[in-house]
Design a protein around this nucleic acid. Sequence first.
DNA 1: CTGAAAAGGTCACTCA
DNA 2: TGAGTGACCTTTTCAG
Length: 966
Amino acid sequence: MLILAFHNVQNNLDPVFAPTLITSNYWDYCDPSVADNVGCHELNELIKCMVCGDTSTGFHYGIHSCEGCKGFFRRSLNQHESYTCSNNGQCEISLYTRNQCQLCRWKKCLGVGMSKDGSRLGRRSKRMIEKMHETIAKQRNQGDMTVKPAGFYSNHPDLFAQGKYGPGGMPPGGMPPGGMNHPGGPQAAMLGHHMPPGMGGMPMGGMAAMYGHPSMAGGMGGFPMAAMLGGDGQVNPQVVMEHMRSISTIIKQELEQGGQDRDPAYNETSTPPEGSPPPIHSRRSSVTGCQDTCPSATMQQSAMQSPTITSLSTPPFRAVDPRGNGVDLYSAVKLSSPGNNSAQRHDTSPSVPQNKYDKFEEEYSHCAYRSESAPSSEQPTAMEVDEAAYSRLPMSTISKMLRSGQPVILIPKDVSREGRDAEKGHRDIVIPPSPTVVVIDNQKDFEADMDDHDREEDEEKSSRSDSRDSPSSSKYAHGVSMKRRKSLEEFPLPHGKQITSYSTLQGPSGQFFQIPSSFPQGMSPATFLPSHSPLGSPWSPMAMTRPPLAISSSFMPASPPHLSMAMSPMGSPFMVHSAKMHHASMDRKSNHSPLNPKSPHNPLHQRVRSTPDPDKSERSPSFSPSPHLSKSPSSPHQNHKQFIKEEPGLQDEPKMETPRSGMLDNFNPNEPITPEMKTKLQKIIHDVNKVYHDTCHYTFRRIKFLRERYFPELGEDEELNGRLHSKYDHDCSKCDPPPGFPTGPIPPRELDPSEGPIDGQKMWTFFSNKFTSQITRIVNFSKMIPGFKQLDREDQITLIKTGLFEVLTIRFSTVVDVATNTVYWWTTGDTFSLVDAHKMPMGNLFDLLFDFGQRVNRMMLDDSEYALMSAVVIMSADRPGLKNRKLIREVQLDLLKALQLEISDNHPDDDQLFARLLTTIPKLREISPEHTRRLMDLKIRQPGVSFPPLHAEIFDLDKEEAAESS
DNA sequence: CTGAAAAGGTCACTCA
DNA sequence: TGAGTGACCTTTTCAG
C-alpha cells in the first residue's frame, strides 16, 4: 500500500480514511481547491499517470495511472521476472518511451507505488474524499508542507532494504530514525527531517516524499543543485522529475496564498514555516502614493513568505565585492547603515529592520549562496543530440506525440549526420533540425490539401503495393507508407479535419520527413526549415515566422494563405478557433488525451502562423532599440545584424480599424471616454503601475541606477533619462525595491569574460537561472493585475502559463541593445552578445527577441506603458482552455483602454503609437511558440536534458520531462 | 438496490 | 506472425 505520510498528523488518520488518502499521490498531482468542486472522473483527468505522465484514468493498483500502465502492470504481475533491460536499468519512462523497456517500466511502476496490495475495489467513501481535502487544506493553511506521498518505501520496503532497485537503495546515511518499523512506514520516519545529504540513493518515488518540506522550499531558484545531482555528480532525473511535478503545486499555491486569498493578518501574526524569510512589516509600496496596505505590499509579503516562490526570486549575489566598486545609491545606504546583522534573518520577532535595505540583506543573504552551490560546470547542458534515442521512436509513439500536440518531425535515422552532411554540400537534402509538424491552418489551403490527398488516395490505390512499406525514392515524392500516414492522420487538425497529404523528403540514407504536399505559391519546402537549419539555407530565418506587418496573423484570420506550424503550448492567434474545431473532432478516446479541452495540459490548440516576411524589403536603417544605449558605436557583431529587422516605416502603420482578432473583439479604439470611464481607467493605470514597480527590476529608473552601478563606462544616456518623466516615475531609492533586486554588494559576473569565452553551457546556465527568477516575478505581477483575482483559478493558471513568456519578452526588450547586438543584464552586470546567445541551441529565438526589443524600444514607451502592455498580454481571452473568456475579455478591454489612454496622454504627438504597439502583439505570439518549440526540440534530441522546473512547468514541458526522467 | 469505481478481460492494432 | 500494447468493455466490490 502506498502511504501518504503526514508530518505530525499521520497518527490522526483513521483506519478507514487512511487507505484512500494514503494511497493517493494527490498532493503532487491535483490541486485540492480544484478537486473540491469536481467529481472523481474529472479529478482523475486532473491527475497524471504517475508512471508515464499520461492522463490518469483512475486509481489503479494503488496509484493514479493511465490505462496503458494499468494494463502493463496487470500483465507484468505474472511475467515481470522475464523482463530484461539493455540499458542497465536506466531507461527513462515517459509517455513516449514507456514501451521501450519493460523492465524499467515495471521498476517505475513499483517505484511510484504500484502494488497488487494497493488495489482498492469499489467506490471511495465520500467521507474519505472530504477528509482528504480537509486534511490537505488544513495542512496547507498551517503552513505544514509535509503532506506528501511516499511511494516505494512503504510499498516495497523489502526491495529497498535489499537494494534491489536503485543504485543506492536507501538514502545515504541509512534508514532514518524509526526505520522500517516506523508506524507510518519508513518514509514517514523521514518526514519531518530535512532532506538527506544527497539523493543519490533516493529511490524512485522517494523524492516525492521530500517535497513541500521547508528544507526543499527553494523552488528552482533556490533548489539545491546538489539535491538534483546524484552521487556521481550527474543530474538525477528522478529528482528533477519530482521537483517539476511539484511546480504545479507551487504556482497554484502562490496564486492561492499570495495573490488571491491570503489574509493580510496571516502575514503579520502567523509564524512562517521554518526557513522562511522573516516577516516584513510596514512595507511600503514602491509606487508613489501607495504606502499603505496596498495589494502590492501584500503581494510582496506573499512573495517573501512563500516557502517556494519567495526564494525563486532570489538573485544570485555574493557577500563579497570582488570588484570593490559597490558604492551606489542603494548599496551605499545599505552599507552605511547600522544593524546589518544577517543573524537576524531568522528572528521572527516583529522588530522593524534598521532600514529597508537591511530587510533585503536579511531576507536574501541566506539565499545568496544557493546559486553558488550549483556551479555552472554542474549545470546540465543540452548541446549533445541523442540521435539514437530519437530515432528509436516507433510510429505509435510519434503518433501519440502528435495527438498530444507535441511537435514532431519524422526523422527516423541518422538525422543530424545527414544534416551535417547537407551542410557540407548536400544542400539538396533537406533535413529539418527541429521537431516540427507543418500543417495548414487556412481552410482553403487545407481543402486544397485534402483534394490533393484524395487524388493521392486514388493514386495510391493503384500503386499501393509499391508504396506501402517504403518511402518514396524521390526527394519530394508523395506517398508515405500507410502506417506512417495513418499515424499522421490521427493528428487532429483545425476545422475538424485531418491532414493526410504529406510530401516525403528522403535522404540518401533512407531518412525522411514529411511536409504538406501543397505550399503557397513561391515557397519551397526549405522555407519551413527553422533558422538554425544545418543546411545553411540562404533563406532568412526571420522569414519563417514573420507575418505581414499590420495584417498580422492574429488580427487577420482571413489573411492570405500561410502555413502554420503546430508547435507550441503557448498562446496563438488561432487558439480559440483551432481549439473549437479540434474539440469537435475529438472522439471519446480523447477524453483521456492531453487534447482534452478540459485538460490543463492540452497543448494542441496552439498554432502559430508562419509566413514569409512581406515587409522584409522595407526595413529602415538600423537604429538602437534601446534608447539608453543608443549612443553605442558600431556593433561588434555586425554579422548578425541582418537578422534584426527594423520596425517598418509609417507606410506600414496599421489603421486602427484594421486589426481584428479575438483579442480585439469588442474593442473600439474610437470610443469616447466618459469622465467616469476615465476615472476607472486611471485607477487601473495606477494599480498596474504599482504592481509593475513591485515586481519588475527593469523600470527605467532602476535601469538607470543599475546602469550606473554596473556599467559606468557607458555614461549617461539622454534617451534613457528622457523616459524618467512619466508621472509614475519616482525615485526608486526611496522605496523598497522588488524582492531580489540587487542592493547588496556587487557580485562577480556570472558571465565573466576573464574566465574564458562564454560558451553555450554558461549561457544555458545563465539563462536558466535568470528566466526562472523572472518567471516568479511575472507570476506575481500577473496575480495583481486588476481583475485577475476574480478569475477562475484554472483560468488564472492558463493565463499565466500562456502569457508569461510574452511578458518575459517585453521585459527582455529593456536589456537589449540592438545597435550592438548586446544584452546588458542590468541586475547582475553581465553582458553578452547575440553571438553568445546563439551558442545556446535555441535557434533563432534570440533573433526574434532582439527583433522584438528593437520594435518596442523604438516606441520610447515608459514604465506605465510597459506595465499596461504586459497586463494586456496576460489578460488575453483568446488563450486556449479558458473557461470564462467573457470576463477576461472585459478585463482586457479595460486594460486596452487604459493603455490607449496612457499612450495618448504620454505621447500626444504620436497618434499611431498605440496601433503600432498593438502590432507587436502578434510578434509576441510568435516568439513564445518558438521558445517552446526550441525546448521541445531539445527534449526530443536530448531526452535527459534538464530544464529549470519552472520552465518545464510554465512551458508545458513538465509532463514530458517528468515522465522521461525516471 | 443503485451507482461509482477499480479489477480484469477482450481485441484491434503496432511492431519486430 | 506472434508478442505486446492500450482503449474499451464487463465484472466485481463497496458506499450510500
